[in-house]
């Protein structure tokens, strides 16, 4: 019996929860078919989380690609199918050729599995991102280094703590019709590894805690720079990410296990600072959104 997981038409960070909810009703060892036929839009978070979904299944899932040609073509240009082909049994055809890339994709779906992957990602993103960050988002040149640091720290966390490889993708959007009313850049860094709760199981924070769950582990790891290692220099990476996102009026969300926190919610968005008791999804999924700078009059 194959369980069908239907993707929403818009696969972004909030809507991926509907995918996790459907998965929660399916036993870990059950065969699943991820049905993307009616999906029209996917963000970096959505695409990379789909790869995590496949990694988390005991049996290789099936995948029905988007029917709309432009959607499928974009997913190809974003390199989604390059990796999905290995993780899913494709049930249908997908565009094979990358038609000249996409200028808004700053970094295609890229695996993060070893140290040199992080170096390659930082090198590639600097080549492509500097112009967009400074010319399109009006960010100061110093912001480019913070942007690269955010990527490197988030990717390093996968290598250091996740216990298995993950994914990263970066994309620019024109959000002039949304509440923020300007261009944004989205970063998604996701994995299907052990997650914050398990990673911090041996930490001092865990030893001192009366209660221990995904939300408490997330808050310790993201907000309090707690690491599983007692070295005072540990935990600096996420602290640096929070500082950079806050400084550039961005938004940060992190999901792990059954919890999700939004440690930085800017004025241009609404969100819940902390959500408990969500349906379980393995690993950790981080999203950063940085908007175009508002120039003072």
């Amino acid at each position: 019996m194959t369980a069908v997981i239907t993707l929403p038409s818009s696969l972004d960070e909030p809507n991926f929860e509907s995918v996790i909810l459907q998965l929660a009703a399916v036993p870990d060892d059950a065969k699943v078919l991820v049905d993307a036929r009616h999906c029209r839009f996917a963000t970096p978070y959505g695409l990379t989380a789909l790869l995590c979904l496949a990694q988390s299944r005991l049996e290789k899932p099936d995948f029905a690609p988007p029917e709309e040609e432009t959607t499928a073509s974009y997913w190809t240009r974003a390199s989604f199918f390059k990796y999905a082909d290995e993780l899913y049994n494709m049930r249908g055809t997908v565009p094979r050729t990358r038609a000249g890339g996409d200028s808004d994709v700053l970094l295609e779906v890229t695996p993060v599995a070893k140290n040199e992957d992080v170096h390659a990602i930082v090198t590639r993103i600097q080549e492509k991102a500097t112009q967009i960050l400074t010319n399109t988002l009006d960010l100061e040149p110093r912001a480019t280094m913070g942007f690269s640091m955010t990527l490197s720290e988030a990717c390093s966390n996968i290598i250091e703590h996740a216990g298995r490889g993950g994914w990263v993708m970066v994309q620019r959007y024109n959000w002039s019709k949304r509440r923020v009313g300007r261009d944004v850049v989205q970063i998604a860094v996701t994995d299907a590894g052990v997650g914050f709760r398990h990673s911090l199981e041996t930490s001092r924070a865990r030893a001192l805690a009366d209660r221990w769950d995904d939300a408490i582990a997330l808050e310790n790891g993201v907000m309090n720079a707690v690491s599983r290692l007692s070295d005072p220099g540990r935990g600096q990476g996420l602290k640096g990410i929070r500082g950079w996102v806050h400084r550039f009026d961005g938004k940060l969300t992190v999901r792990s296990g059954k919890a999700r926190i939004a440690p930085i919610i800017p004025d241009w968005d609404d969100d819940l600072p902390r959500q408990d008791s969500l349906p379980e999804f393995p690993g950790a999924q981080l999203q950063v959104i940085i908007p175009k700078r508002v120039v003072d009059a």
């Binding site: 140290n115 040199e116 992080v118 170096h119 390659a120 930082v122 090198t123 600097q126 690269s148 640091m149 490197s152 390093s156 290598i159 250091e160």
Partner: peptide, 14 residues
């Protein structure tokens, strides 16, 4: 330290 010519000091291992 690295097998490829990178110019960034990133990651603990590096």
């Amino acid at each position: 330290s690295l097998s490829a010519p990178y110019h960034d000091l990133v990651t603990r291992r590096t």
